[in-house]
């Protein structure tokens, strides 16, 4: 049984390659059927915001890419409720469904996975 991996993505899509790298890990792992989860934390929640227009900055559409995660077998998508609220975001602002978790649920989530990486 492969070890499960939780990827915590906590940078905005515009802040360097971090968000893209976290997604690449998830897509590659998903393509190989690894048990993966992804948590959006801190500015990482901005990756999920709907109606972004990265083409204006000649960047790829990360939010569109993220929506492919379930197709790659990555169904466990979580978002930190505190990070959302602190940034004036609500679930209805998100481009893809992610489960909001409060602090106790986040602690349980991290404990559940075999490996955790924070980007």
């Amino acid at each position: 049984m492969a070890r499960s991996l939780l990827i915590i993505s906590r940078q905005a899509p515009w802040k360097g390659p971090s968000a893209r790298e976290a997604l690449d890990i998830a897509l590659a792992g998903g393509a190989f059927d690894l048990p993966l989860g992804m948590l959006f934390l801190d500015d990482g929640v901005f990756q999920l915001q709907a109606e972004q227009q990265p083409a204006v900055l000649e960047q790829k559409n990360l939010a569109a890419n993220l929506q492919a995660l379930p197709m790659f077998g990555v169904d466990e998508l979580f978002v930190c409720a505190h990070s959302l609220a602190a940034r004036g975001l609500d679930l209805c602002h998100l481009a893809l469904p992610a489960e909001p978790l409060d602090a106790p649920a986040l602690r349980a989530l991290i404990a559940r996975f075999d490996e955790v990486i924070t980007l």
Partner: peptide, 18 residues
Amino acid sequence: DFYAQYQLAPATRPLIKY
């Protein structure tokens, strides 16, 4: 359609699923 929706080309597994 996959590309129009997700802006990336799928690997085998997601292609099968989609």
